[in-house]
């Protein structure tokens, strides 16, 4: 069974270890601005919400890519950016309704979560188990994903990964 990232914002303390681990693993630097997982702060509610790609089945980014640079990893279920094919046109960044694929100005390519090939570093780094990587049917991200896709007419007949 495929695993997925499960995020429980109630457990997040806003320490940003996940962002550091992600940017180090993927970009070789400790730089939260290069992280593919982001922790959003809700000051009014005193709440932190880590957020990254849900690897949604609609794969908006993959569908929108004009040069076939995003593909499904059949083992992890992640949608991965093939750096050598990506031309940096950024169409995927406006197509993803979750805002989780982003342009990286220094490489001229887009970046997104690829689940670190099945060993997500954000999970290892999280001291409070706010981010876990488990077999799960109904994760928090799934619910969020459902909400966003129900609003789109094409979800019921999606064939991107059929």
């Amino acid at each position: 069974m495929e695993k997925s990232l499960v995020i429980n914002p109630d457990k997040c303390t806003g320490c940003l270890q996940c962002e550091l681990a992600c940017s180090y693993e993927n970009e070789g630097v400790f730089n939260p601005s290069k992280s593919r997982i982001k922790v959003f702060t809700f000051h009014q509610e005193g709440r932190f919400v880590p957020y990254t790609c849900t690897q949604c089945s609609e794969a908006w980014c993959q569908q929108a890519c004009p040069v076939d640079a995003i593909s499904l990893n059949p083992v992890t279920g992640a949608k991965e950016v093939n750096e050598s094919s990506c031309v940096g046109c950024k169409v995927c960044t406006i197509s993803c309704p979750f805002g989780t694929i982003n342009y990286n100005q220094s490489s001229g390519k887009v970046i997104k979560c690829d689940l670190c090939g099945g060993n997500p570093k954000c999970v290892e780094a999280c001291p409070t188990q706010a981010i876990t990587y488990v077999d799960a049917d109904q994760t928090g991200l799934d619910k969020m994903r459902q909400w966003a896709t129900e609003t789109d007419n094409s979800s019921s007949t999606n064939t991107a990964n059929a």
């Binding site: 982001k38 908006w60 950024k90 960044t93 406006i94 197509s95 993803c96 309704p97 979750f98 805002g99 989780t100 694929i101 982003n102 342009y103 100005q105 909400w147 966003a148 609003t151 789109d152």
Partner: peptide
């Protein structure tokens, strides 16, 4: 402004 810009689509489309 480019970071997370896709959510604009999510917010508009999701009404």
């Amino acid at each position: 402004h480019t970071q997370n810009i896709g959510v604009v689509r999510g917010l508009i489309r999701g009404k």
